[in-house]
Nucleic acid binder design. Structure first.
Lengths: 331, 331
DNA sequence: CACCCGTTTGCACCCGGTAGCAAACAGAGT
DNA sequence: ACTCTGTTTGCTACCGGGTGCAAACGGGTG
C-alpha cells in the first residue's frame, strides 16, 4: 500500500519549504501567486491532500459530530439522518453514527466521543438519563451536547424539538371538532414517554374541553409489533362499550401497528369504530392502505437550527418549532 | 471550556515520566504494579483518558470506517445500519456516516474519507460507477473498500450480498407452483438495476420454465411514491386482458407503493387480480395491511462477514449468502 | 544609495500520543 | 563483592501538520 504524500515531500518537489506548502492549502494565507502555483502543481503530481487527522490534532477541532441513536425501529430516523448528514456535510462537518445499546451505553459513547475529540454530540432522540452525566463527572470537559427531536432532561443541554404543545392542541381541536369524546393514548416505553410531553398535553387539552378520562396504555417499545400487542391486550380486556373512540399513538410506527391489529385481527373499521392518530408523518402513512392522520415534524428547520447552534451561528438554547397537522382518513 | 488532561500532566501529578503513564494505559506493557497504581490514581483524579486523535496519528490507524449511503428512501437501510454500527462498535470501530448526494458525490466522499485516514470504506448499497475510481487516480492510496448489499462494479473491490440467483430461483419456483404464468418485473432506476442482478435472474428462470415474455418496467427511484407511479402508468396503458398476473418488485418499498396503487386507485385485488412480491422483508411487509410475500436478506451474516473482512479475519473476496423466502398473502 | 514599509518565506516549537533503544535497577548465582 | 539476567523506566525520534515571530525580499521614495 502506497503511503500518502506529505507536505514535506511536496515541498521538496516544488523547491520550497513545507510551510509554504501548508500556506498554499490555507485559504487566505500570505503566499506569492508564483509559489502557490508551483506548490499546487507538485501537489497534483504527487496526489497530495492535507492529512485531516494531523490538522485536527494541531487545531484542536476535528469537524466531526457524534450522533447518538438508540432506537432504530422508527423509520422516521432515516429521513432525519439524511437531512442531518446533508446539512452537516454542507458545513464541512461529518457525522459519526453511534449506536447506543446494552453493550455500548451513553457513558461509553460519551467517553468515546470525547476521546475522539468530536466537536459536538447530538443526542438524536435517545433516552438519556440525567444521572448518566453526573456519573461521568466530566463537567465542562465534554464536547457541547444537543438533543434533537426529544426534550432535554439534562440541565444546560439545549434541545431542538417540534412544538408538542402546539401540535397536541391542533390534534385535540381536530378530534374534538370531528366529534370524538372518548380519547385514548398509547405511549412507548413508559419511562421515556415524559421526554416527549405528548401524553401530558393530550390529557391536558382534553381536560380543557371538558373530557376527563383519557385511557392511557403503553407499548413495550417503539415498534409496529409492540403497538399491535398493546392494542390487542387493550381490546381484549376492555368491554366494547367502554372502548375509546379515538386512539392517539406517540408515534407513527406504533399507530401503524395499532391500526393493523384493530382492522386485521378484530375486524373493526378505522375510523368508524376507532379512529387512529400518529405522529411524525412517516412516508407510508400517506399510503391508501393506511391513510393515517398524523403530525409532521419540521425536519428541515429542526436540523437547520441544530446545525446552526453547532456552528456557533445561533445561540445554544432550547428551541421548539411548529409542525403541521396532516389530516387523512383515519380520523 | 476546560481542556482535557494530557499524559504529561498525569505524569507530573504521579511523579513519573509521561511514558510510564502511556504504559499504564497500554495493555500488556511492561510496567511495575506499584507505578501503574499511582498513575491510574492520578489519571482518575485528573479525569485523564488517552486522546485517540493523537494515537491515530501515531499508529496510522483511526479505527473509523466510512459508510457511504446514497438512498435514504429504503427503510431497510435502518436495521442494516443498526446491525452494522453494533458490530463495528463491538470491534472497537466506529462508523462515519457519509451521505452521497448531488452536493457531495463519491469522489468528494472518497477523498474526504482518505484525508480522514479511515481504516475502510463500506459502499452500502450505493450506485458507485467504476469510472469514478479511475477519475480519482488514487490507485493503491485509498483505504480498502467493500460493497455491502449490492454487487461490486469495481474490479478488486469485494462485495457482500444476498445470493440473488438462489433468491430469484426460489421466488420463481414459488410463483410457478402457485400457477402464475404472466410475470412482470419492476426495477428501480434503470441504470442501477443491473447492480442487483435480480431482474436478469428473474427473466432467466422464467425462461427455464418456458415463460418467455417478462414485462419489465421501471420506477424513477426507490420510493413508494415512485413504485405507485410506475404501476399507475403501466395499468393505464395496458389492456386488462394483457396485464401481468404477478408483479415482482426490486425491493419492498417499491412493492408497497405498487400494492397501494393496485388496490387503492384501481380497486383490484391482491393477489387475486395481481399478485405482488417484494424484496428485503421490511418490518411493515408483515402487517395485515400488506402481508407481502418477500425475500429476507441475511442481514446479520452479511454484516458479520463484511466486518470480518475489515478486521482481517476473513479473506477479502466477494461473498454471496443465502436468504429466506417469506411467503405471505400477496401471492 | 540608504531608508522604509509591505509582502513573502523560513524557522523553532507545539499538538498528544507511539516505537524502540538504552540506561537504571533489582534479585539470584557464584 | 561481582557478574549476569530480567524487569522497569526514561529518552530520542517521529506521526503530519499549525502558529507566531523574525528574517529576507523587493519596490518606491528622498
Amino acid at each position: 500500500m502506497r503511503k500518502r504524500a506529505t507536505a514535506r515531500e511536496v515541498a521538496d518537489a516544488a523547491g520550497v519549504s513545507k510551510w509554504t506548502v501548508i500556506r498554499a492549502f490555507t485559504p487566505g494565507a500570505s503566499i506569492a501567486e508564483e509559489s502557490k502555483r508551483k506548490v499546487l502543481e507538485a501537489a497534483a503530481a504527487l496526489n497530495y491532500t492535507p492529512n485531516l487527522l494531523a490538522r485536527s490534532l494541531a487545531t484542536n477541532s476535528t469537524r466531526q459530530v457524534a450522533v447518538f441513536v438508540d432506537d432504530f425501529a422508527n423509520p422516521q430516523k432515516l429521513p432525519f439522518l439524511e437531512t442531518l448528514t446533508e446539512r452537516l456535510q454542507a458545513e464541512g462537518l461529518v457525522a459519526v453514527l453511534i449506536n447506543i445499546n446494552t453493550h455500548f451505553d451513553h457513558v461509553h459513547a460519551l467517553l468515546h466521543a470525547d476521546q475522539r475529540q468530536v466537536d459536538a454530540v447530538i443526542l438524536f432522540g435517545t433516552a438519556f438519563r440525567s444521572e448518566t452525566l453526573s456519573d461521568l463527572q466530566l463537567g465542562r470537559g465534554t464536547p457541547p451536547m444537543f438533543v434533537l427531536a426529544r426534550d432535554s432532561q439534562i440541565e444546560g443541554v439545549p434541545a431542538v424539538t417540534c412544538d408538542a404543545e402546539l401540535a397536541l392542541r391542533e390534534i385535540v381541536d381536530h378530534l374534538f371538532e370531528r366529534g370524538y369524546r372518548r380519547p385514548g393514548f398509547m405511549t412507548g416505553a413508559t419511562v421515556l414517554s415524559t421526554a416527549l410531553k405528548r401524553r401530558q398535553h393530550f390529557v391536558d387539552f382534553w381536560k380543557e374541553k371538558g373530557v376527563d378520562g383519557v385511557s392511557v396504555f403503553s407499548a413495550e417499545k417503539y415498534s409496529a409489533e409492540a403497538g399491535a400487542e398493546a392494542v390487542r391486550s387493550y381490546l381484549k380486556q376492555t368491554d366494547p362499550a367502554d372502548r375509546v373512540d379515538v386512539l392517539m399513538c406517540e408515534n407513527d410506527i406504533l399507530a401503524l401497528g395499532a391500526m393493523d391489529e384493530i382492522r386485521g385481527r378484530f375486524g373493526l373499521l378505522v375510523p368508524e369504530d376507532m379512529a387512529v392518530v400518529g405522529f411524525d408523518n412517516y412516508e407510508l402513512c400517506g399510503s391508501s392502505a393506511y391513510s393515517l392522520t398524523t403530525y409532521e415534524q419540521p425536519r428541515q428547520e429542526m436540523v437547520h437550527v441544530i446545525v446552526g447552534m453547532i456552528m456557533g451561528r445561533l445561540e445554544p438554547e432550547t428551541v421548539t418549532l411548529p409542525g403541521t397537522l396532516v389530516v387523512r382518513n383515519s380520523t
